[in-house]
Design a protein around this nucleic acid. Structure first.
Lengths: 213, 213
DNA sequence: GACTCCATGGCACTTAGTACCACATATCAA
DNA sequence: TTGATATGTGGTACTAAGTGCCATGGAGTC
């Protein structure tokens, strides 16, 4: 699975165990591989039959594991799809930290969003299918929005570090972070609605420009 | 139920049947009353025991109806809570249309948000409990975010009417609408985090100011 | 070779949500 | 008043998601 495999950072962590983080051994690598494989199978099935027409039993059978195992990897059916976005929050936050300190928040946020457009350029067809699946399935849509809320603290923290201790209010940072993610979502929505014909980067620029201070 | 009863527009529609809309008769009024009562009972139970610790059977029993009936009024357990926000989208859109045509989009959106702060001023304790319940319950949080997506077209349409046929791009309007709702959500979140001590209007001003063009 | 860890599978259970049917009541027509 | 119809309600059965528990077997360790 291109998208989700890209999110997996098992290989990176395997080389140098990070202090504090659970140390990554052979088992963890295997687990990540299985997880990616399960997600891949699930995505294929959902794509062909629709999210609501596939049961967890179907997924498990198609992947050659038991229902228990599948549900152990993905707590919910939705997670099997949305794991593709697992690392996006941290990715954006990292990109935000990498922006010049002198740059304005909004401009920095705009640039940080480039950190997650790679899959859309690399495999547009897959990205389109994924986006459509999520947007057409209320359950997936709801869960994804909820998951994105977990990105807010990451972005807020990154923004706060940029601003320094005498920076803007927490509320202001929260709003900027949320609005930036909205720009991303809206840009992707419009890109999806155009069947990938429009340029996602241009749409991002346009979305951010609509709120440009 | 103060909040949800306020959302009910049965009385208003009863006086003058709107063309196109299903005509409101005695039955509909009764239905709305039952719905409000069920929502009230549900909110009370959720508030005391927590959303996840209350089953639909509990709700039905507490309300004195069958499980079938409860699920007929609210398709999901979440709906019993989130029905309190049912009319907010249209309310904001209507307020937006009522703003002067010369006013800027962002300023108009800010003012339109005042249309939904009334419950927070009228019964802060209840509003706090509702906000906490939603934010502390992932399932409710997810559903509410998804429901708010249904408000986007309403706001976009209202913005488009204000802008006229030669207005800004659809994407720009979408982004503004979404960002404005984020401002509302964030302001309410901070208000809730302060246990209602902060002024919601001031928080709204601050939130909108953070993105003020 | 014995031991330990842990992923897996199987099972039982609760609960949400759907579908369908039977019954009662209210409204309206004759 | 009587009869026909519509509609809200309750009851039952069913599918499927998600949780918890336990037995097992294989991989790595001593």
């Amino acid at each position: 699975m291109v998208l989700s495999a890209m999110e997996s950072n098992a290989e990176r962590e395997a080389g140098r165990p990070v202090s504090g983080a659970p140390r990554t051994n052979t088992r963890d690598i295997a687990r990540q591989a299985v997880r990616a494989e399960l997600a891949e199978v699930a995505f294929g099935l959902f794509r062909r039959q629709g999210f609501d027409n596939v049961t967890v039993n179907d997924l498990a059978a198609a992947a050659g594991v038991s229902r228990s195992t599948f549900l152990r990897y993905f707590g919910t059916k939705e997670d099997a799809v949305l794991s593709a976005f697992d690392a996006h929050g941290e990715r954006i936050a990292a990109a935000l930290r990498a922006r010049p300190a002198a740059e304005g928040d909004w401009s920095a946020l705009r640039s940080a969003m480039d950190a997650v457009v790679e899959p859309y350029r690399r495999d547009p067809e897959r990205a389109l299918a994924l986006a459509r699946l999520v947007r057409e399935t209320p359950a997936l849509c709801a869960r994804q929005l909820e998951r994105q809320r977990a990105w807010h603290p990451l972005l807020e923290q990154a923004l706060a570090e940029r601003a320094g201790p005498s920076g803007a209010s927490v509320l202001a940072l929260s709003v900027k972070a949320a609005a930036a993610l909205d720009c991303l979502n809206m840009a992707v929505d419009h890109w999806t609605a155009s069947d990938g014909a429009l340029d996602l980067i241009a749409l991002l620029d346009e979305a951010f420009a609509a709120l440009s201070p």
